[in-house]
Simulated scan of single mutants.
Amino acid sequence: MKVLSAVINNIETDQRVDKVCNSLLKFGYDVELIGTTLRGKPTLNKAYKTSLIPMKYEESFKMFAEFNFKLFVNLLFKADKNTILLANDLDSLLPFYVVSKIKSLPLVFDSHEIYSELPSLSNRPKTKKVWKTLERILLPRVKHFYTVSNGYADWFKKEYGSNPEVIRNVPHLQKLNDKENFIFFQLPQVPENHKIVLYQGALNMSRGLEFMIEAMKHVDNCVFWIAGDGPKRDNLKELVQKNNLSDKIFFLGNVPPKVLKTITPLAEVGISLEQDLGISYKYALPNKVFDYFQARVPILSTYLPEIKATIEKYEAGKIINEHEAKHIAEQLNLLLQEGKKSYYENLTKAAKECCWENEEPKLKAVFEQIKKVDN
């Protein structure tokens, strides 16, 4: 059977979608992923089929309207009676749903977040209402549905009566002595006897990075690397300069996933300090947590329930009680004093349990269920 999927993000860097598509290819499906030119034209060098929707608009309603219309046409043209449709997130679900009804095709929905509860919608009530309405109409009608955390699954069940499977966004099991782990990336010079603290991920609101930057005033013999990019980059750089921390805090910019995998093990501590700015963030379980596990790097963690529970389960780091610079510095200093070697055994157990190899069977079961129904 054929699986048709799509994502509005850059298909070159969306690791969850890439893992899912590669797994489906391994299971024997003919996979095609449809992307867009919204954030540049990515290199189409995947093991599965890829195609791009050319985009004219780059912002707000016009962008989503263009994407949904063009995706609808693409799906209508490409889908046949042997096709399973796989939608990623609410921003692509409507055309998938309509085409599934027109052609009587099975539909699978992968919700990476709670779209209507994103912090970016908190000050845009009209836009939020549109997404909330789409959720309310479509989600109860989607039979095959999975998401990334137990918190999300519980919320969808309570809000809409849905019962999604949980397939976490975890990386493949990583061996730290892999011969391929060479770094071809310009890294900042680290002073002698200094340790590296690392944040990896998007530079968006609610990531706690402003507090972390302030905390670095109270941490000695340490540098803070920020790997990623996003709309908050310039604000964060200004904050670094304002606090005279340019010699301690360095922005690496966007780092390709394969390269980042070789950089993360250099860190003594990984940072995941997300703030509670809406339900979608509150119940998030970001992949950076599991990337730190694979790199055997202990984590300075937020108190948000899904992340906290994961860190506590494996005793894989320390948890802050509030977003306050001195408190963050105190917890970070304790972690640095203990050293990551003291966490190695716990992190190794976490890495073996929290890997894509353990999530793949759940994904396979979702699609096997569809095949059984069809037969």
Rank of each mutant, 00 (worst) to 15 (best):
V99W: 08
L118I: 15
V170M: 04
K70Q: 13
K62R: 14
P171L: 01
E159T: 08
R124T: 14
T127W: 02
S104G: 06
K101P: 02
A87N: 03
K101S: 03
I137N: 14
F61I: 15
V99N: 11
I102Y: 07
R136W: 00
F109M: 04
A153P: 13
N150P: 00
D91C: 05
S149A: 07
A65T: 15
P54Y: 11
Y57W: 14
I84Q: 11
L76M: 13
K126T: 09
K62G: 04
I84W: 09
Y160M: 02
R124M: 11
V170A: 05
W131E: 05
F67V: 12
W155G: 03
K129W: 04
V170N: 05
A87W: 02
A65L: 15
K78V: 01
R136L: 00
P95W: 14
S116H: 04
I53L: 14
D80W: 00
S116G: 08
L75H: 12
V98W: 03
E113H: 08
V148N: 04
L71C: 08
K101C: 03
N88T: 06
F67Q: 12
E58Q: 15
S149W: 01
E58D: 14
F72T: 06
L107C: 09
K129T: 13
F67R: 11
Q174E: 14
E66M: 10
V148H: 00
K132F: 05
R168I: 01
I114C: 05
V148L: 06
F145N: 07
P171A: 01
D89F: 00
F156H: 05
L86S: 08
K78Q: 12
V142C: 06
K81R: 15
E113D: 11
L118F: 03
D110R: 05
H144I: 09
L93I: 04
Y57I: 12
S104Y: 08
F67E: 10
Y160K: 02
D110K: 04
G161N: 07
I84K: 11
K78Y: 00
I167D: 01
L134R: 09
Y57F: 15
N169P: 09
K128C: 07
E58R: 15
L93S: 11
K78L: 09
K143E: 13
R136N: 10
K143C: 02
G161P: 03
S149T: 07
E135L: 01
K175I: 15
L90T: 08
D89M: 05
K62W: 09
L75V: 13
M63Y: 07
S149D: 03
F72K: 10
I167R: 01
P125E: 12
L107V: 11
I84G: 08
W131V: 07
N169Y: 03
S111V: 10
Y57V: 10
S122V: 06
L85P: 11
P125G: 05
N169V: 06
